[in-house]
Design a protein around this nucleic acid. Structure first.
Lengths: 211, 211
DNA sequence: GACTTATCGATATGGTATTATCGATATCTA
DNA sequence: TAGATATCGATAATACCATATCGATAAGTC
């Protein structure tokens, strides 16, 4: 549309701004306040916001309602996005109970698992279905996003089935890398891997201090 | 020590290399193979590996055993790191069952929760304790890393208690930002936030294609 | 032993992201 | 109405990261 170029780094921060603006009760917000609360640079906040909202004015800050609206528009959460979860183990169940998805415009439609005996463990109204039903279900409901939350051994097979189902964007919550078609976008969010990264960061920053 | 400067970006990839080198069965590994399987640039892999290992040689690649050793050394996983989990809900339980931590050199020592009635739900031998026991437990066992996995409403309070317990690095699996002392390092790993980022990425890249 | 090839390491280039700086403007006060 | 101040937007400078290129070297081949 507008040909604006949103950088990856900026994109990754937009949801944070969204959350913050929602939580705040004031009519007007300044970049300084956002920066302080989110632990970011003041200029960075302005630059990020400038790429989605032009309503900021000197001495007064951004109007919260306008900023909120613009953020939601850019993030595309005005109309909710349908998502499936693959894997009904503990992690999948945790995701089912999580209310954080709705706030960000996601609607969890269904959970798929090989083991349909887990039905009684699941307390929500979201249906649990067998893996083999996934392709037809996703295609029928026009679902293009999915969360991979199976055990390591099943990761690649499940990923293949997601590809067969027409999933175009996968959040991989496994710690395995999976091979997917080029048309599918993958973002890895593995807790153990993140923990390893955090440790390495802490480790190396300590070394620098001691240096 | 050696004054080497490991970039954040490189650090985030080291665990991937580690996993890959472990999984591979050959004696020698070339950067090209790693790059292809991990979907990275060949030169990038060499550059990353050069910062931790000097044993690569032309025509032959890297000796797997040496590379593995060096990666483990840099990531500091030769001696295991003790970690606590805060929050024994579904997510906390999922983490307890997860074997991915041990492979990366982490030992889950205990879980803390306000509700100690969850004991019977937990199937592992890892002890569940009350939150108020956390400070003494962590200090007694010299624990400096923790995973925050409570519900949104309790996030800040739990984070405060982690700070009181001497935790120096927190993996925040909540979707809330928490305020912590400056001495504490935080890395956020929130599945809904990651999903929002992924959607925004897919969204904007589609726009570019249609452009 | 000379030639070819695969592969590494190092340097150079280009791009992206962050931070610093400055001018412009809306509000407030006198 | 004039001046002071907070805050934004824009441009510039810096730092960071990824990619391209090139020479060097070890293994294989004739």
């Amino acid at each position: 549309m507008k040909g604006k170029t949103l950088s990856k780094a900026t994109l990754s921060r937009l949801p944070l701004y969204l959350q913050f603006v929602r939580a705040v009760q004031t009519e007007r917000i300044s970049s300084a306040v956002i920066a302080r609360k989110l632990g970011l640079g003041e200029v960075q906040v302005r630059k990020d916001l400038a790429s989605v909202c032009t309503a900021g004015s000197p001495k007064v800050g951004y109007p919260a309602s306008q900023l909120l609206e613009d953020l939601e528009k850019v993030l595309g959460i005005r109309q909710s996005e349908k998502v499936v979860i693959v894997g009904a183990g503990k992690l999948g169940q945790a995701l089912l109970e999580y209310d954080g998805f709705r706030d960000l415009g996601f609607e969890i439609m269904a959970v798929f698992d090989q083991d349909s005996g887990l039905q009684n463990e699941i307390r929500t109204s979201i249906p649990l279905m067998a893996m083999r039903e996934m392709p037809s279900y996703c295609q029928m409901n026009g679902i293009s996003m999915g969360i991979l939350a199976v055990s390591s051994g099943n990761a690649q097979a499940a990923a293949d089935q997601m590809a067969d189902s027409g999933i175009k964007a996968m959040l991989n919550c496994t710690s395995c890398r999976v091979q997917v078609p080029e048309t599918m976008m993958v973002y890895q969010n593995s807790i153990p891997l993140s923990l390893a990264y955090l440790k390495a960061m802490a480790y190396s920053s300590n070394q620098m201090e001691e240096d």
